[in-house]
Design a protein around this nucleic acid. Structure first.
Length: 233
DNA sequence: GCGACAG
DNA sequence: ATCTTGTCGC
């Protein structure tokens, strides 16, 4: 698939924030509620700057892998809270461009609307691709919420300045919730339903788990070398 | 063995 | 965020 960056790459914090403000109005909060294929996106860091970005496309009904891509690159921006997306976006975009299929929904590791400027990674990736996108965070990052009841499927709203920007969602009985927010072209209700449907077994949705594993174990030779040197030590 | 969790 | 070690449990 083809992806346009839509803006020059920011050289400063101020420019990056301006890009977010510029693109935020393009976010759409409604969209389809059925998806045949779903892609998980994740990035794994090796040291300070080197990273691997993985995209794994699953059949939404069976959760079997349709296609997967991993690319290696460098972080494209310093780490600044709220500007996290700029570190990973170029590598993720390159991985998406190498796909031969176009997924119907992007499941991002991180936040979407639940973000200080309402434009987290899931919104950014969604706007660049034009595809429905949602974000799943592993830790509470912004906003306030009550802990949801302990049963799988239970949720509580995440509020920022009195506005609901996401949900703390229990995907397994008695296990820490995940934090779901809209990225692009999806309702919060649909995003919640999709996360549950994509999480039959573990805490995190299957597409994200697959992408995490792919990014983490990108190079079996390098991993074997690391294991050997640790054993020698 | 893999995943959650401690901290 | 990551790494490392151990325990519990499916």
């Amino acid at each position: 698939m083809r992806v346009d960056l839509l803006h020059p790459w920011p050289e400063s914090v101020a420019e990056a924030e301006a890009v977010q403000e510029l693109l935020r109005p393009r976010v759409e909060l409604t969209g389809p509620d059925r998806f045949a294929t779903v892609a998980g996106l994740d990035v794994h860091y090796h040291g300070d700057d080197d990273l691997s970005a993985a995209v794994v496309v699953l059949d939404a009904a069976t959760l079997s892998v349709v296609e997967q891509v991993v690319v290696h690159g460098k972080a494209a921006f310093p780490y600044v809270p709220g500007l996290f997306a700029f570190r990973e976006l170029p590598a993720l975009v390159e991985a998406l461009e190498r796909l031969t299929v176009t997924p119907d929904l992007l499941v991002c590791d991180g936040y979407g609307l639940a973000h200080p400027r309402g434009f987290g990674l899931a919104c950014h990736v969604g706007v660049l691709t034009g595809l429905p996108a949602l974000g799943v965070g592993k830790t509470p990052f912004v906003g306030a919420h009550e802990p949801p009841p302990p049963e799988r499927g239970a949720w509580s709203p995440i509020e920022l300045d009195g506005v609901v920007v996401g949900r703390a969602l229990r995907t397994r009985d008695g296990v820490k919730p995940v934090y779901v927010s809209q990225g692009h072209r999806i309702s919060l209700e649909t995003a919640t339903g999709q996360v549950l449907a994509l999480t039959p077994r573990y805490r995190l949705p299957e597409p994200i788990r697959r992408a995490d594993h792919l990014a983490r174990h990108r190079d079996p030779a390098a991993r074997a070398a690391t294991t050997r040197s640790r054993a020698t030590r």
